[in-house]
Amino acid sequence: MTLHTRESARARWLGACWAIGVAGTAIAALAISGQESKTPPVVEGMAMPVSIHHPPARVKGPTQRTLTEPAPNVVPEAKANPAAVPDKYHARFESAQARAKLRAYEGAPPVVPHATEGLSVHACRECHGHGLRAGDKVARMASHTYLANCTQCHVEDQGLTQIGVAPTPVENLFKGLATSGYGSTRAWVGAPPVIPHTTFMRTNCVSCHGEYGYDGWRPDHLSRTNCVQCHTPGAHFEQMSPVFGDEASTAP
């Protein structure tokens, strides 16, 4: 139990809550987009009424919204054809690294790099339902059909900072499956690459390859929406493939 970081953590937490409570969705996006971002004007040691020391009350429980709103799972028309950058390879590495940092192995659900406790169930949807960009922070659109219990799979990267628990390193000798290499699945130069990951729960290609996707992973043909017409799933990750799990067929 480390106590020394509690005050600043609490300040940050209060900030997030304050922002969400007062300014609604847009500001919420900013506040939750990173631990380092917008800290609200809370001065440490400042005298405050006791009640303010607690996160604002949000009564847990059913809301009309969660019960009635349809699931957002619409692939939007691409808004822009991203301009060419000279270092697309580099961007790909960076993206792969950024992506891998939040996952135990290729295919693991990413952890959440911001606080989630205290947010209601539809808070996730506000930003990740359609994707959102705020400054240099990006909330990616969910890659799968709407599943209501988001926190079942996605947990905070640093939990309990709200009550001042300092993040502690956890040792583990697990070495996860690495991210697939780019271009490893083309039949020939110029051929459309085979999808180097499972497509189960990643049916929404634009999540990573669309407007709010990763740098270097956006195609120059985003306006074409039938991705799997040209890009076929790699059989070795696809459980429904007849060769899945067949060791002989996966040898290089």
């Binding site: 991203p82 950058v85 790909r92 240099d136 690495a178 290499g181 271009g183 490893s184 992973w217 043909h221």
Partner: peptide, 28 residues
Amino acid sequence: VEIVFVGLDETTEHHTSPRATGTGGVGC
């Protein structure tokens, strides 16, 4: 020179490049 395969193992070092951020990026 065409790059047809990129693999990184655990010991790969990475640098941060200011060029890598922003909205750019063309793939495939």
